[in-house]
């Protein structure tokens, strides 16, 4: 290959890299998904222990049991609030940690125009879903909360996926489908939650890790 050709090839790959880096946030780490999923599963286990029910046990439906539970001196609203908050905070911190680390390895900034755009587009459906769930709680429609969180979370991911790695789109679609199925099996909300926030995160996180990061990690 002539030197000239090599020069043109370099130019084209530089153009492609700039187009990608300037329009998408590509530092999202698959490990954040794996860790967030694991934390979510732990959160689900704590919920089962609190309610003293067994997964897939339809004899005692979780949202019928929940208002009666008073374990550890907490009523169910206090318990679910604390459990969800703990899961959210630890999962979010882990996500930020691994994503910041990946950005550093790539020599990119974590907080720039692309991550801002990603976050805004994620938050619009997510906050809508959050308020929607508060209304469901207000009307005591507890059984609908789990499917609704999955559906809105999925919509948020599909919306945000245009501004980050494309795998997020498939994770989003999976969450939506799972949420829709959950609407027809109201008693299994906790199980669907564990699958959606736990297993799906671990699954897609692992795919993303092996697809984008392991190769890079080896060279480090």
């Amino acid at each position: 290959m002539t030197q000239n050709k090599q020069h043109h090839l370099n130019t084209l790959s530089e153009i492609r890299s700039l187009m990608e880096r300037s329009s998408r946030f590509i530092s999202l780490s698959g490990l954040s998904g794996v860790v967030a999923g694991t934390i979510a599963l732990l959160g689900a286990i704590v919920a089962y222990i609190y309610l003293e029910i067994i997964p897939f046990d339809q004899e005692r439906i979780y949202y019928v049991e929940a208002p009666l539970a008073t374990k550890w001196g907490l009523n169910f609203i206090q318990f679910f609030f604390l459990d969800a908050l703990a899961v959210l905070l630890t999962a979010l911190s882990a996500g930020i940690f691994f994503t910041t680390r990946k950005a550093k390895q790539q020599g990119l900034k974590v907080w720039d125009a692309t991550s801002k755009r990603l976050l805004i587009n994620l938050l619009i459906p997510l906050i809508t879903g959050g308020v929607f769930c508060l209304a469901l709680l207000y009307h005591r429609l507890l059984g609908f909360v789990a499917p609704t969180t999955l559906i809105f979370y999925g919509l948020a991911l599909v919306n945000a996926s245009k501004f980050t790695l494309n795998d997020i789109r498939y994770l989003g679609i999976s969450e939506i489908i799972l949420g829709l199925i959950a609407l027809f099996y109201l008693g299994y909300g906790l199980e669907f939650w564990a699958i959606g926030f736990g297993i799906l995160h671990i699954f897609y996180g692992a795919i993303m890790y092996f697809k984008y990061e392991r190769k890079e990690a080896v060279t480090f």
Binding site: T11, E14, I15, L18, M19, S22, S23
Partner: peptide, 9 residues
């Protein structure tokens, strides 16, 4: 080239 690449997307 860089400026144009970024502005294209």
């Amino acid at each position: 080239l860089g400026i144009m690449s970024i502005l294209m997307v």
